[in-house]
Write a protein that binds this DNA or RNA. Structure first.
Lengths: 260, 260
DNA sequence: ACAAAAGTGTTAATCTTACACCCATGG
DNA sequence: CCATGGGTGTAAGATTAACACTTTTGT
C-alpha cells in the first residue's frame, strides 16, 4: 500500500440509512420520510442521518430508528465488538446491518458513505414524524421502487439519492433470509397465530402458500414456535392457537419459496 | 432528525479491509500482511488501506487487492449503482462486500470506518508483498483466529485491530454461501475436476463428504458445471473429467452441510 | 496385481406436495 | 346452516444418505 495521509484530503461524512420493513394489510411496506431540504427537497427518502463522532454505527442506527418510529431501541449493552455479526433485538423488532454504499457521486454535496441497516418490525401505529416537522409514511415497497424518473408528483417520484437501490437490496435480503431463518416472526407481534405468520410469508414473497403444509412445517420444526397458551379468533373462523417465537434461529430444512 | 453539521466535527477516515480466502493444501487460508508501522507494529493484519476521495468503495477494494496479491482487478466498467449487490468477478476470483465496522475505538489513532470485502481466490502463487516492504503470507484461518492475547511471538499474536472479528465474519459468510450458490468454484482454477471441487467444500467446512453422492449432486444440477472437454489425472487414480463453472449461480436444492 | 481415485446403481429413510377431510367459531 | 379459517391424515413423488460395485489409471 502506498503511504497515504488521509488528513491531507477532504474528509468523508458517514451516515446510516434505514430500511424499515413491516407488513401492513397483506403488503410489504417500508418507511419513507419526506425530505425537507435540498438536495431532493420534497422527495421521499429512507430515514437516516449522520453518524456522530463517538457513536458506534449500530448505535446511530438505533438512535435514528427511535427518532423516526418511536421504537424503543437502547444501544447494545456493551458491544466490545463493533461487528455487524449478531442481530440486535429492539422491542421485538430485528435490526441488522445491510450493506454500505459509497459511490463518490451518490450525494451531490460531498463525499458521503452510508451504512444501511435493515429493520423488520411488526405492524406499527402510523409513523410519527421525528423531532422536526418532516412527514413520514408507510408505503408498499412496490410503489417506492416503481418511482418514475422525471415525475413531479411527489407520490410517484423516485426515491432520493440511491435509496431505491438500498431499498431493493433490503427487500431482497428480507425475502431470502426468511427462507432459512425464523426472521419472519420479527414481522409479527409477540404473540401470533400460524395463519398470521403464513400471511407474512405470503406478503413478503408475494405468493400463496398451502395453509396445511405450512402449519405442519412450522409447528413441526422444534424450537421454532412455542405455544403461548391462548387462542384467538382475530381472523374469523375457528380459533387459532397463539404462539411465541421460539429460540431456534435457523430453519432446517428451509422453507421453500415457490417459483414465481 | 436533529439538524447536524458534519463539518463542525472531526472527520471520519474510511478504509477497506480485505478477507482474501483460498484453499491451500486442503486447508482454508487467508491472506495476512505484517504491519510495518504503529499501531500494532509487527503484528499480522488483513490487507487494506484508505479509500481515496474520488474512488468507489469496490474500486478501492480492487486496487488494494491488486497491490497485495497481483490479482488483476480492473474496476467495474461503469457502475452507475454504487451498491454492493452483484458480485464482481476479477480474474476468476470473486469479490463481494462483507460488512462495515465502525466501533469508535477500533483504531486508536482516529475515527476509522472500515468496509470489509470478501475475496475468494483459487490457490495463488506465494503472495508477493506490495509496493512497500511489508511481508505477506497465507495462513490457515484457524491459526489466525486462534491468536493468543499477550503473546509476543509474531506468529501467534492475535490479528491487529478488530481484524479477527472481520476474518471470522468472512469465513462464516464463505461457509454458508457455498451451501446454496456455486461460489465454491471461485476457489478452483478455471478448469477443475469434481474431486477438486469436493475437496474445496471439505476444506471450507472441515468435514468429509461422500464422493459418490457429491458427484451426483453437482453433475446433476443443470447449469452448475459444464464439461470442459479433457480429463486429468492430477490426483492419481482414474482420470477425471474436467469441468468449468457453469452460468448457474444458485444451487437449488442447496448442498447440505453435515452437522459437525 | 494392487492402490487410489472416478464414476454408476440401488435401497431405505426423509421431505415435499397436493389434496381429502374434519373442527370450531361468527353471522 | 353455512362461510371461514384452523388443523390432521394420507398417498405419490422427489431428494438424501449409505454403501455395493465397476472403471481406469500409476506403480
Amino acid at each position: 500500500m502506498a503511504p497515504y495521509d488521509p488528513s491531507a484530503h477532504p474528509p468523508f461524512a458517514v451516515t446510516v440509512d434505514l430500511v424499515v420493513l413491516t407488513v401492513r394489510r397483506h403488503t410489504l411496506c417500508a418507511l419513507a420520510v419526506r425530505r425537507g431540504e435540498p438536495p431532493y427537497q420534497g422527495r421521499w427518502a429512507l430515514p437516516g442521518g449522520f453518524v456522530r463522532p463517538d457513536e458506534d454505527l449500530m448505535e446511530a442506527a438505533c438512535r435514528e430508528l427511535a427518532e423516526e418510529t418511536g421504537l424503543r431501541a437502547q444501544p447494545p449493552a456493551s458491544t466490545a465488538a463493533a461487528g455487524p455479526s449478531g442481530p440486535y433485538g429492539t422491542d421485538g423488532a430485528h435490526l441488522e446491518q445491510l450493506a454500505t454504499y459509497g459511490d463518490p457521486k451518490r450525494d451531490p454535496r460531498m463525499r458521503v458513505v452510508s451504512v444501511a441497516y435493515l429493520v423488520l418490525a411488526p405492524d406499527l401505529p402510523a409513523p410519527r414524524a421525528g423531532g422536526d416537522a418532516r412527514s413520514a409514511r408507510w408505503a408498499p415497497v412496490t410503489d417506492l421502487l416503481r418511482g418514475e424518473e422525471g415525475t413531479d408528483d411527489e407520490q410517484r417520484a423516485p426515491l432520493a439519492f440511491d435509496h431505491a437501490l438500498i431499498l431493493a437490496d433490503g427487500v431482497e435480503r428480507a425475502r431470502s433470509k426468511i427462507e432459512y431463518s425464523s426472521l419472519a416472526t420479527a414481522f409479527c407481534p409477540s404473540e401470533f397465530t400460524v395463519g398470521e405468520l403464513r400471511r407474512v410469508y405470503e406478503a413478503v414473497w408475494g405468493v400463496a402458500l398451502d395453509p396445511r403444509n405450512f402449519h405442519r412445517k412450522v409447528t413441526g420444526t422444534p424450537g421454532f414456535l412455542v405455544p403461548a397458551g391462548g387462542t384467538t379468533t382475530r381472523q374469523g373462523g375457528r380459533p387459532a392457537q397463539l404462539f411465541r417465537a421460539g429460540g431456534a434461529t435457523l430453519l432446517n430444512p428451509p422453507m421453500l419459496r415457490p417459483e414465481v
